[in-house]
Design a binder for these strands. Structure first.
Ligand code: MN
Ligand code: MN
Ligand code: ZN
Ligand code: ZN
Lengths: 138, 138
DNA sequence: GAGACCATGCAACAGAAGTGCATTTAATGG
DNA sequence: CCATTAAATGCACTTCTGTTGCATGGTCTC
């Protein structure tokens, strides 16, 4: 049993060949990926399978879904200790308008916001748009 | 010339019958509206016309588009003094998971965030999800 | 009124998300 | 090992939102 297989198994996700491939693909990138990104990376893979794999990963806390404002859902592997399942890891995300990549800034938590009376916060999403470090270096 | 007509005219938008209706509809609501909401409110209206009207309104700074995480674009009238065109009015938005309504919290600005070295912020979007005041009162 | 310009209506398309169902694959128990 | 069963995958299809092209209609200007 490899490292990846153990990781999936620990999260009660059966480590099939496809799932291992997808997991490794996501681990190899330091940016969030869209369903289409994975689809293009594995020509022979079925979109539905990829779709359901991501859903399964999300339900089991292996990845978290990211809404970066592009209207295309992105996904990124959860870091060890990520409690995104219970909305306790509200780190912010950065979307580069130049290279169109989205990254997790896991060290940067969303600050607490005081809401008007009667409003109850349960979740939050903060996306900063701009130019990423790679793009600003050129 | 009515008040609404003057408002549109001031923003260089020709005050047609349809545009006045849409403006009044949005002004009558205290929540953000989706294209479909307007479509349902005016049975006889063409979806494309509504779509382009909203685009025009947005370009001219009459409304601003809101991404509340539902993957359905919402729009809300800009308040007097709103500088959303130049990303200078970064108020936050609240989306109620109970009634599915989205509101502008225009008094609540997005706090400044320190980004890692190399990252340049140009825009930001902060959405709080939870239960709104109306829904929490019941 | 003629022409120009803009708004509107109609049709069609694109892309992403999602579902139903048949088939294959993998785990389990005898 | 084979049969049973459940889960994963593949394929087809649908829905929804957003978007564009093009023809038509209305309005303003000269
Ligand atoms: Mn993240
Ligand atoms: Mn707003
Ligand atoms: Zn970039
Ligand atoms: Zn509500």
């Amino acid at each position: 049993m490899t490292e990846v297989e153990r990781t999936l198994d620990n999260k009660s996700v059966r480590p099939t060949a496809m799932r291992i491939l997808i997991y490794k693909f996501m681990a190899s990138k330091n940016t969030a990926v869209a369903l289409t990104d994975i689809e293009n990376a594995f020509e022979k893979a079925e979109r539905t399978t990829l779709y359901r794999t991501l859903k399964t990963f999300e339900e089991k806390g292996i990845v978290h879904q990211i809404d970066d404002g592009t209207n295309i859902s992105k996904f990124a592997l959860c870091q060890p200790g990520c409690n995104c399942e219970i909305d306790q890891d509200l780190h912010l995300h950065f979307h580069c308008s130049h290279c169109d990549k989205t990254v997790c800034l896991t060290e940067h938590k969303i600050p607490h916001i005081n809401l008007p009376h009667g409003y109850i916060a349960e979740d939050a999403n903060l996306v900063i748009k701009g130019v990423c470090d790679s793009c600003s270096a050129h």
